[in-house]
Nucleic acid binder design. Structure first.
Lengths: 108, 108
DNA sequence: CGCGAGTATGTCTGATCTGATATAGTCAGC
DNA sequence: GCTGACTATATCAGATCAGACATACTCGCG
């Protein structure tokens, strides 16, 4: 969050807190869910760029539409393993994966 | 493998092949196990640098010595989730994680 | 509006992963 | 050699995650 926005919200009476503070997660837990969400977003972006539906992607990775939806939603029942394997099947390279995880701004 | 070594082995009658060729894995499967092994190696390196035993690390991450051993061995019964969570508990940052995955040469 | 394509959510059953325990290997210092 | 500290391997019951299916939501188009 940009400093300006934070200041604006706080002056409006909001206490700005991270997901960690809000949910009472530890630092590692926070980092972990953020990692998962970054992978989830990338999966969706990659799928949409290829013009695939969730159902089509499901077939590619030998899964089901519902699981793809959960993956993209960052559902807690989907593992990093599954996300990574799906991204790899979609042709993601190690370098790209690294960029996604580092989250500089907009990793593919 | 360095080209020189490869040439040497081949002239000695060895057919040099990748883990993929040898085990009949697909490209994605290969990338996935390589990713796991990279994480495994980093975990070991990080632990040793901190002068911790597997048992001590196990307590830190609330697991057992045997599981730490399996993690470091890249055992197929350990998930990327567990490896990543363990690395995070040991203070690995997203950037470091990214370097480990990209494997430029020697990521911490 | 009603339909249809795409997506989201809930919940099964079986598969995989987890921590724990037991036990076996390794290797330095005596 | 024998210990003792460390690491590796095997196994198991319980937890978590998988794909599948059913169903509900969303939204553009006629």
């Amino acid at each position: 969050m940009r400093k300006a926005k934070k200041a604006r919200l706080e002056s409006a009476g909001w206490k700005v807190r991270s997901a960690q503070e809000f949910l009472g997660l530890t630092e590692e837990e926070t980092a972990f869910v953020e990692l998962k969400l970054a992978l989830a977003r990338s999966l969706r972006r990659k799928r949409e760029r290829k013009g695939l539906t969730q159902t089509e992607l499901a077939e590619l990775i030998e899964s089901s539409q519902s699981r793809v939806a959960k993956m993209e939603a960052g559902d807690r029942t989907v593992s990093v393993d599954l996300l990574v394997r799906s991204l790899l099947v979609m042709g993601t390279t190690k370098r790209e994966l690294a960029r996604i995880i580092a989250e500089p701004k907009r990793a593919a």
